[in-house]
Simulated assay, not measured.
Amino acid sequence: MRKLLLQMQMSLDGYVADKDGGMDWMVWSYGNDWTWNTTLRTYHTDLMASIDCILLSRKMAVQGFTAHWAALALRPDNPQSHFAENLTKAHKVVFTKTLARSEWENTTLAKGNFVDEILALKQVSGKNIIAFGGAGFASSLIKAGLVDEFHLIVNPVILGAGLSPFKEIRGSLGLHLIESIPYDHDIVVLKYLKKEYGL
């Protein structure tokens, strides 16, 4: 069965946006000028090559994610183009109750129960699945026990308050550290696996 990976940038105290929804505190962003160092670029490009299905919230899909990466996939002169090509080639599933269609190729709109939809996707043969989304979407995935592996890009900042993907968890969620990778500018990528995998 395929695993569902969740990747998110966050503050040291576990927020993915400040209390006003701002994210300008993040050291690295997906701007047109990819200022990330070579090692971090390689990590992201390799991660995208290891999956063939992407889960997106409606909000993320319509607020620029789709248009941004679809455009960059057509620009081989840009260092992000290979990363963007992997996004474009992957099967994308947008969870929505309101969208009628998507402009991005290889995209399916999922309008049923998201738990049932994702469990069915996990049974399909292929590479792993990755989820991108805001705090609300991520929180729903975590609460439902659907996330198998966490890739947390921890920024060297404490916000004190903000939007958390862990706010709906009741009880504890045991994790096993797979890898901890430090990068420039005091960034750390932490990879965790749910402990139910026998570790």
Rank of each mutant, 00 (worst) to 15 (best):
L74R: 10
L74D: 15
R75C: 15
R75Y: 02
D77L: 00
D77M: 01
D77C: 02
D77Q: 05
D77W: 00
N78S: 14
N78L: 07
Q80I: 10
Q80F: 04
S81R: 07
S81W: 08
S81H: 14
H82L: 14
H82Q: 15
F83G: 04
E85R: 13
E85T: 11
L87T: 09
T88M: 12
T88S: 14
K89W: 01
K89D: 15
K89C: 13
A90Y: 04
H91I: 09
H91G: 11
K92F: 06
V93T: 03
V93H: 09
V93P: 13
V94R: 01
V94K: 03
V94N: 08
F95T: 03
T96M: 03
T96L: 00
K97S: 11
T98I: 03
L99F: 06
L99K: 00
R101Y: 08
S102G: 04
S102M: 13
E103K: 04
W104C: 13
E105I: 07
E105K: 11
E105L: 11
T107Y: 12
T108Y: 09
T108W: 05
L109E: 06
A110H: 08
K111I: 06
F114D: 13
V115Y: 03
V115M: 07
D116F: 02
D116P: 12
D116H: 11
D116A: 14
E117Q: 12
E117A: 15
E117W: 01
I118Q: 10
A120D: 13
A120N: 06
L121Q: 12
K122C: 06
K122T: 02
Q123G: 05
Q123F: 04
V124A: 14
V124R: 07
V124N: 10
V124E: 14
S125H: 06
S125R: 03
S125N: 14
G126V: 11
G126T: 10
G126E: 07
G126N: 13
K127M: 08
N128Y: 07
A131E: 10
A131D: 12
F132R: 03
F132T: 05
F132K: 04
F132Y: 15
G133M: 02
G133H: 05
A135G: 05
G136M: 00
G136C: 00
G136P: 04
F137I: 01
A138G: 15
S139K: 00
S140Q: 15
S140K: 13
I142F: 05
I142V: 07
K143T: 08
A144Y: 00
G145W: 00
D148E: 14
D148M: 01
E149R: 12
E149F: 04
V154L: 10
N155L: 13
N155Y: 03
N155I: 07
N155G: 14
P156D: 12
V157S: 07
V157C: 06
L159R: 01
G160Q: 05
G160D: 08
A161G: 08
A161D: 15
A161H: 03
